[in-house]
Design a protein around this nucleic acid. Structure first.
Length: 399
DNA sequence: GTCAATTCACATGAAAGAGACCACGGTCTAGTG
DNA sequence: CTAGACCGTGGTCTCTTTCATGTGAATTGACGA
């Protein structure tokens, strides 16, 4: 009898998992799954375009576009690494252009690329044509067919223009031993329209569109991933459906769905629950928004924060129709009080634009006829987020 | 009443400056054999 | 003789200013019906 109960305890322990996560990494945005579902068509296309590389032929450059979280990166990486496995003459370089400290300048991109060939390059100080030379040399010495995946290529072009793309697409003409093929990935569908026509034609020799997932596809993806990520029996019925529904609302972003599931599971775990419940998903949804915004705010430079502080001050004072000029006035007070340098209106105008881009504030350029043209600035954040932001600002002595 | 001109309050662009950072090569200095 | 410190030079990067130009509709004022 005694033995029996002991056995029970053990088997109980074995059967009911003590943690929710089996493997958390599977839900992280960087994870590349073995099989990608609902993207067979695209994978096939990419593969058939790239496969001549196995015979050492030059293959077309590919341009992949579609909204965030539609599987562009995953598919590209998957095909490329598979090719790399199949041939010793293929090398894949993946570069996310949106990563800070990488995409800011032409120099840094090339330095980063050269580094991926194992070359040590100083972070700054060399002339740009020097770094070009180093890069050429790296490729030439490698003696391989190179697939260069440039993720978030639109961010790159926005920052430093398309000159570098032009050079990269033409680089093959000067290479003897190696070949280089580009895979550009962008989530801005209108991106190619503003490119130099020469770059455009050579970059998008082949274009592949990644349509957004619908709710049921996201659900499939989540189900498949959660098999590896989360222990069986730890998900309440409907959790996955809910995550999928949330994400489908926002243009079918699978990445967001995975984030939601991960954070929901984390929340559940923190609360000591052994099951992810629907309410955890709701909480995760809130937290995702909050975290993102606060994180962005935290990383802003002081001047930007001062402008944000001015905006919040005006909003809290109940002002409607806030204009650039109003913000500039309050900003000047704040910056004087805190011993910050006073920037010109021109610069403040730019900072407002940047805050808008980041989604922290909301602006609209309106013309008020006789009374000029200006930005109308609004704050569309929830109270909770504003409170958090205020905390950050107070920490910086700006409020 | 209609219509073109005017006007406002910035937006937006371009260029250039300031000050920080960094690599590199040359020179100096102190330590070692 | 050599390793390391130090300096000047030449380059990039980021933030900023200065100057210049653009913009869209309310307002104005001339004009004609």
């Amino acid at each position: 009898m005694k033995q029996q109960t002991l056995q029970d305890i053990f088997s109980n322990y074995i059967q009911t998992p003590t943690t929710i996560f089996k493997n958390k990494d599977v839900l992280s945005p960087d994870y590349i799954p073995e099989i990608t579902i609902h993207r067979d068509e695209q994978i096939k296309q990419i593969a058939s375009i790239l496969s001549p590389i196995l015979r050492g032929l030059k293959v077309s450059n590919i341009f992949l576009f579609g909204k965030t979280g539609t599987g562009k990166t995953v598919c590209a990486k998957q095909v490329a690494t598979e090719l790399e496995k199949n041939s010793k003459k293929v090398k894949v370089i993946y570069l996310n252009c949106k990563m800070k400290r990488v995409s800011d300048t032409e120099y840094r991109i090339l330095a980063e690329l050269s580094r991926s060939f194992g070359k040590t390059v100083p972070p700054t100080g060399l002339p740009t044509d020097e770094i070009y030379r180093i890069f050429y040399k790296c490729i030439e010495l490698e003696n391989k067919s190179i697939i260069l995946i440039l993720d978030e290529i639109d961010a790159l072009v926005k920052k430093i223009g398309d000159g570098i793309l032009y050079n990269l697409t033409r680089i093959n003409q000067d290479l003897k031993n190696s070949k280089i093929s580009l895979i550009g990935i962008s989530n801005d569908t209108t991106f190619t329209e503003n490119l130099d026509p020469r770059v455009k034609s050579s970059l998008s020799e082949e274009e592949i569109l990644f349509p957004p997932y619908n709710a049921s596809q996201i659900k499939d993806i989540l189900e498949q991933r959660s098999l590896d990520a989360i222990n069986t029996g730890c998900l309440e019925q409907g959790v996955i459906t809910k995550c999928a529904a949330f994400a489908a609302q926002e243009h079918g972003d699978a990445r967001k769905a995975l984030d939601l599931l991960r954070i929901a599971a984390e929340t559940a775990e923190r609360e000591g629950s052994l099951k992810v419940l629907i309410k955890h998903v709701d909480k995760a949804e809130e937290k995702l928004d909050l975290d993102r915004t606060v994180e962005i705010v935290k990383t802003q430079p002081k001047q930007s924060l001062a402008v944000l502080a001015a905006t919040i001050k005006l909003v809290e004072a109940g002002r409607k129709n806030i204009q650039t000029g109003d913000i500039f006035e309050v900003y000047q007070q704040i910056s004087t009080n805190t011993g910050l340098k006073n920037l010109t209106q021109r610069r403040v105008s730019d900072l407002i634009g940047e805050l808008d881009m980041l989604g922290i504030i909301n602006t609209r350029v309106i013309s008020k006829g006789r009374y000029g043209r200006t930005r109308e600035i609004r704050l569309l954040l929830s109270k909770q987020i504003v409170e958090k932001i205020k905390k950050v600002l107070i920490e910086n002595y700006l409020l």
